[in-house]
Amino acid sequence: MTDDIRALTARLAEEPGSLAFLELAEALRRRGQLDAAYKVARGGLTRYPGLADAHDLMARVLSDQGDLAGAFDSWASALQLDPMRTSALKGIAFLYFKAGDPAAALAHLERALEVDPDDVSVRQAIGRVSGDVRRGGATASQTSEPPTGPTAFEPPESPPAPGPAAPVPQAPGPFDAVDGDRSGLLLVDAHGLRLAGRLRGADGDAAGDRVAAQLAGVSREAARATRLLGLGAWHAIAVESPDGHLVLTQASAETIVLAARDPSLPLGRVSMLADRAARSARTWLEAQG
């Protein structure tokens, strides 16, 4: 299992009601794990029957599985919920093309082009399908080979998944400027993915991933709380527990730093450590561009 799928799985397990299923199912589909992708997409659809993204996702999975009728129904549902959804228009056009109806395919592609005139793939597909229409309907289903080549008409691909973030170089690291023990420091992005650092103990990386997954959206939630309560911008969150303390602080708009220490270190000192780690991470993030 890759890190991104593991992190997304952890996130979905922790927050079954979240929309993480969209990213997870798409990541599984892209890896060719179609049965797993189908199960995740099915679960998400059950929970969010009114979400056009979920129907669109299911259509892509079914299309990859070869269930073209099922894919058609799913794209039709996505369109019913969101008539401007170009991915669904392209998907249905692709299925009409495969079924030997280039005129219907062309009609859907033209609708997609009206919605997004800058979509180059739609223009290419229109060029390809128009030729078939002019030739009187020679279609993919009537040829022995599916269309290939640079102007071939292919099913729509989803946009790149938002996570995981760019690979993190091993050295220098975001906490290099922090003196002393750097374990127990984590840099986490807004999607709950661990960018760097690890927690203490043998299970450090896995625990770090679990904790990072819990922190998805925490920055937004903290900002919302301080804003609505008239407390301005948020700076830090400190948590004191029987077996240790942790402090969260922002390194950038999209990332937070977590510092965790055992309870022998006073909470105030953990806050100072978190501030230093955040400054160090900020410098590192700026250097990454």
Binding site: W234, E240, P242
Partner: peptide, 13 residues
């Protein structure tokens, strides 16, 4: 994170 149930939290703005 294996720290147990929190007994105190502080959100600073």
């Amino acid at each position: 994170a294996g720290l147990g149930r929190p007994r105190f939290l502080h959100l600073r703005g």
